Simulated scan of single mutants.
Amino acid sequence: MSDLYAVADFCLIPIGTGEPSVAEHIAECQRVLEKSGIKYKLHGYGTNLEGPWSQVSQAIHDCHAAVHAKGAPRIATDIRIGTRIDRNITHGEGNDGKVKRVEEILAKDQK
C-alpha cells in the first residue's frame, strides 16, 4: 500500500526555556515546515499539516529536533492525525476542503 495521505494538527510546547513566550521556538518550527514542502498553516494553538503520512511525521520530528537545538530541554506535543481511503484527496485539499464544507453549510443558514 502506498503512503497514506494524512491531515494532522499538532501543538508543540517547548518546556523549560525560562521564557514566558514560546514564539521564537514556534517560529523555528515554522521555518522547518517551510523547508519540508508539505502544506501547513499556523493557527493560535498549533499547526495544521497535510501530506503523505511519512512526510507529516518526519516534519513533526524535525520540528522537535530544531526546537531542542534552539535550547528547549523538553518538548510536549499533542497530535491528531486523520486519514481516509474512501476518497482520493490530492495535495492541499484536506483541511481546506473540511473548512469549505462547514462554511457552505453555515452559508445556508444565512438564506
Rank of each mutant, 00 (worst) to 15 (best):
T47K: 04
D86Q: 12
K108F: 15
D86M: 13
I81L: 05
E24D: 14
R31T: 13
D109Q: 10
Y45V: 15
I26Y: 09
S21Q: 14
I75C: 09
R84C: 03
Q58V: 12
V56A: 04
E24A: 15
Y40W: 11
K41P: 03
E28P: 03
E24C: 11
G71E: 08
S2W: 05
P52Q: 07
I79Y: 03
L4R: 14
P20C: 13
I60H: 04
A27R: 11
L4W: 07
T47W: 00
S21Y: 13
Q58N: 08
A6G: 01
K108N: 13
C11D: 15
C63S: 07
A66P: 05
I105F: 10
K70G: 03
D62T: 06
G92T: 08
K39C: 12
I79G: 09
V32I: 01
I85V: 10
S54T: 10
R87Q: 04
V102P: 02
A23G: 08
L33R: 08
T17M: 06
E19G: 00
P14H: 00
R74K: 13
H61L: 06
I79N: 01
D78S: 15
P14A: 10
S21H: 14
Q55L: 14
A6Y: 09
A65H: 07
H64C: 02
G94I: 00
D86T: 13
A59E: 06
A107L: 14
R31A: 13
V99A: 09
T83C: 05
D78T: 15
R80K: 15
K41E: 13
V67L: 04
A8T: 07
I13E: 14
N48I: 00
R74A: 06
H64W: 03
S57T: 08
E24V: 15
L33Q: 06
E93T: 09
L33A: 04
A59F: 02
E28C: 05
E34L: 12
S21E: 14
S57P: 00
Q30C: 07
R31C: 13
S2R: 12
E19R: 10
K70M: 10
K41Y: 02
A8R: 05
H43N: 11
G92F: 12
W53Q: 03
L42T: 01
I13F: 08
N88P: 08
E103D: 12
S2Y: 08
R31Q: 14
G97Q: 01
Y5D: 04
D109E: 09
H64T: 03
A72C: 02
I105P: 01
A6N: 07
K39E: 12
H43F: 07
T47R: 04
I26R: 00
P73G: 10
I38M: 09
E103G: 02
P73N: 05
R74F: 10
K41A: 04
G46R: 07
T47L: 08
L49H: 00
W53N: 04
V56Q: 00
E28G: 06
D62S: 10
V102I: 12
Q55A: 11
V67S: 08
P14F: 02
K70C: 09
D78C: 14
G82I: 00
I81A: 03
T83F: 05
S57C: 00
E34N: 13
S2T: 12
A65G: 10
D96S: 12
T77K: 05
L106A: 15
G51L: 02
V22H: 07
A27D: 12
G37W: 00
R74L: 12
I60F: 03
D3K: 02
T77F: 11
L12K: 03
R101H: 08
D9M: 11
P14Y: 09
G44L: 14
